[in-house]
Design a protein around this nucleic acid. Sequence first.
RNA 1: CGGGGCGUAGCGCAGUUUGGCUAGCGCGCCUGCCUUGGGAGCAGGAGGUCGGAGGUUCAAAUCCUCUCGCCCCGACCA
Length: 573
Amino acid sequence: MITMRASQLYAPTLREVPAEAELVSHQYMLRAGLMRKSASGVYSYLPLGVRVLHKIMAIIREELDQAGAQEIMLPIVQPAELWQESGRWNEYGPEMFRLLDRHQRQFCLGPTHEEIITALVRTDVRSYKQLPLRLYQIQNKYRDEIRPRFGVIRSREFIMKDLYSFDRDESGAQASYQAMYDAYTRIFARCGLKAHPVEADTGAIGGDQSHEFMVLGDAGEDLIVFCPHCGYAANVERAECVPYDPDEESAALAKLEKIATPGITTVEELTKRLQIEPGQVIKTMIYIADGKPVAVLISGNHDVNEIKLKRALNCDQLELADAQTIATVTNAPVGFAGPVGLTIPIFADYSVTTVVNGVSGANKKDYHLRNVNINRDYTPTQILDLREARAGERCVRCGQILEEARGTEVGQVFYLGTKYSQPMKAVFLDQEGQERPFVMGCYGIGVSRTMAAIIEQHHDEDGIRWPVSVAPYSVIVVPISYKDEEQRSVAEHIYKTLTSAGIDAILDDRDERPGVKFKDADLIGYPLRITVGPKHLVDGNVELRLRSSKEQFVVPIAEIDNQVSTFLNRIGE
RNA sequence: CGGGGCGUAGCGCAGUUUGGCUAGCGCGCCUGCCUUGGGAGCAGGAGGUCGGAGGUUCAAAUCCUCUCGCCCCGACCA
């Protein structure tokens, strides 16, 4: 039987908050002795942290195995050739950790594993009869983040579960996608997390369809919009915006006039000076798309969503134009661009279509134009959805008003299609003997990040309040004084009874004052605490305390294992 | 990469402006006594290349130059 005593446990708790940690989860992970930092964005896990990780991973394995998946292990050190084949060796940029071996051959530390697994499967899977195939791995991944932060939530080395599905056709791949979506819902629920699926952009992974599982909270790095009416939810990177309704009571078009606005280059200054609403301003941004300048129009109260823009322009490289280019294209310094008279392609967001008698730059230093009107004074090349969605917009599905929230992404599912199988020539023979590329999907869960997210959702001022399912130990037995012979023997008895009943228990056998033991137990966050002390021992009882609610119950020693099981079941639901 | 801040004992910090004796405080750690229902008390003790390198000076944690690391905000990103 495995036993654990607090006197032997390597769990150095800290009384004070380390200066480096801002987020509660980060602070508690350090204070409770779950982990220590080794470098910026790189952490060592201590025994308690490892136990939590193992529990999370066990839940993941159970659910994925249940969903017909099989676990494999893939290399972390990956050869450059595979990444060159998929085209991502260049696409990935400085975020990829790259290294050379002694023969000057190029490798990287895998930021993800699509290439390696596609290469693996293409050599061994030749027939539709071997499909569908769902393979996963739980391993360290590496991304050289510009700025690691929030402890393990944005780190450079992190533990991730990745699953890849290979299907013979689209409907098979959709079934895999749905199976994973459902498995994720169960996994996060079992971890005690409220995770909301939202529609997402596919980013560097690529593909056609994606959902992110978001844990809501102010600490979240992502912004999502959702519709309380119909349930639509999406990352703002992805969220669609509806065209504007034509304004019924639109004012008569006034005469275009040039106005002097010396030194005024921002929407904010402009609205202040002219006493107008930001919505009246036609903001004109010059971008460089694959080397060519384009103008983007959007109303002054919105921001451009560059992901949408990139998609609309169908370009690889997109960046805001430099001052020199802007001067060349608009004949004016930065801050005075406007659509009137521009000769480069103009892409307008829906939001400018209803701006009547608007204000824009005059393409001349220190001048703006008043009473600018679409189709009279300028004609966009294309009018489409280019803005970042925000609270207050109308839902694309049902037209109700959207709300917004912040969230941390703990998992994401992607429908990849043939994005990797095609260029990497990963093919099988179908029933007709035709060679076809696998239709793929990939599905990630940030395991280490999930641990932090659980703490974000389950803590109080005293420490962590682990859900039973992922707690490092379910129960801690705390004798008030371990030196006291009676207390010690009762505590030992209870501890042995629990462990032999298969309950995860730890005994605090340290020669510490009770306060110290209580504080540590609260900080580490064991769901149940059994206190063995003189107060109740005289009546043959001990005290049982729930960490999350702080409720206490006096329980006869003889019933302890039943009581513990009952309480664990109750709070474990 | 831009802006801001920090690096002095395991953790939290003072000392740096205005150079000066053996570099301090709280917590933690070790020994002993005492104590035991929410981070006790007393006594004794260990622990420091003051991030690193170079320079100025009779003298550097303190001034100068370079450098490394860390944190926060922004840009970027699963």
